[in-house]
Design a protein around this nucleic acid. Structure first.
Length: 347
DNA sequence: AAGTCGGGGCC
DNA sequence: GGCCCAGACTT
């Protein structure tokens, strides 16, 4: 464990840097002013494994449409899933609604990290971030930025899972009594703007004098992470029923990949060789091309088919205007654009 | 500890 | 093409 004296000035240095260099972001408020727990929570959920530029317009749309947690709790599931389309990791949206309803029922957010941790979709990082930023608790918020910053500060070379545990302990010990939320955001801003993954700008880093990786001269070589396994390829087919200017959309089952989302009819996607096309019903199916889409743990090659019909297919579904439809996950938006000659609509 | 779960920008 | 990103949840 690092001796506390090594880093005893770290928080003060970082906060002074933050006072001059804090990013201005939609979910933030001027330093020293009170933060709305609902907005902090919503932003933290949207930002899980998601970049700031990607999440920002969704945050604006959600807070405009549902200004309070009670508003969101009263929303229809389908409306929230539609509004989340394109943001990814759709279990977040499902948990977002569960969480909003629990919070509305209990009359507000828990005000401690331990209490927040009990809510769906709130893990160790998010609980710490909300507790520190919205409630001023002396809690640590260790995200990917903070892991990287401390891997470099300490020049950690060991097994990554073990090093992350050590980092969590180090950061927890360094959170100041005053301004714990600013400390959390300062570390994230430092990681996002200076101590970046591939080319850290040590020349302007306020912590350069404390950084062991910098002293070694090779900061970009940290953190040392295990090699990732190759993605397999899965093949599938998607079926675009066209009736006049409308297309047939279905809703996916509530759990699993793209769970609860609007979708094109699409069979099971299998690893290995391309499958024989097996349309859900007979029609004059014409090939529209292939969509390649990369998911977290596999690559999909989706053959897209189109047929003009005059009646609705069997089963649950709705006719939608493809030029106006914004509720589809990206893979289906791409497939639909291919079949209809349109473009992928995104906010 | 490993696998599941999205999407997009950057190198 | 691989990497990363304000990670959580399940097994």
């Amino acid at each position: 464990m690092t001796r506390r004296s090594d880093f005893r000035e770290l928080a003060a240095i970082l906060l002074a840097w933050f006072d001059q260099n804090a990013r201005v972001l939609p979910w933030r408020a001027p330093i020293g002013t009170k933060r709305d727990p609902y907005r902090v929570w919503l932003a933290e959920i949207m930002l899980q494994q998601t970049t700031v530029p990607h999440a920002a317009p969704y945050f604006e749309a959600f807070t405009r449409r549902w200004p309070t947690v009670e508003d969101l709790a009263a929303a229809q599931d389908e409306e929230v899933m539609r509004a989340w389309a394109g943001l990814g990791y759709y279990a977040r949206a499902r948990n977002l609604l569960k969480c909003a309803r629990e919070v509305a029922a209990r009359g507000g957010f828990p005000e401690t990290s331990a209490g927040l941790r009990e809510l769906p979709g709130i893990g160790p990082y998010t609980a710490g971030a909300i507790a520190a930023i919205a409630f001023g608790e002396r809690a640590a918020a260790v995200d990917g930025n903070v892991d990287r910053v401390f891997a470099r500060l300490l020049a950690l070379k060991g097994e990554w899972a073990a090093e992350k545990k050590r980092i969590a302990a180090e950061v927890a010990a360094l959170v100041p009594e005053e301004r714990p939320g600013d400390f959390a955001e300062a570390l994230m801003d430092l990681g996002a703007t200076i101590c970046t993954p591939t080319s850290p700008n040590c020349m302007i880093c306020p912590l350069t004098g404390l950084c062991k990786a910098r002293a070694e001269g090779r900061p970009a070589e940290y953190p040392v992470k295990p090699a990732k396994t190759a993605k397999p390829v899965r093949h599938g087919h998607a079926w675009v029923y066209v009736k006049k200017d409308k297309v047939w959309l279905v809703r996916r089952p509530p759990e699993g990949l793209l769970g609860g989302m609007l979708a094109l009819p699409s069979g099971v996607w299998k690893e290995g060789a391309a499958q024989e096309p097996a349309p859900p019903s007979d029609a004059d199916w014409q090939p529209a091309g292939e969509v390649r889409h990369v998911f977290t743990h596999f690559t999909l090659r989706l053959a897209v088919w189109r047929a003009n019909v005059s009646n609705s297919p069997a089963g649950e579904g709705t006719w939608a205007d493809p030029s106006e439809e914004t509720g589809l996950p990206t893979v289906f938006a791409k497939a639909l654009a291919l079949a209809t000659g349109g473009t992928v609509r995104r906010r």
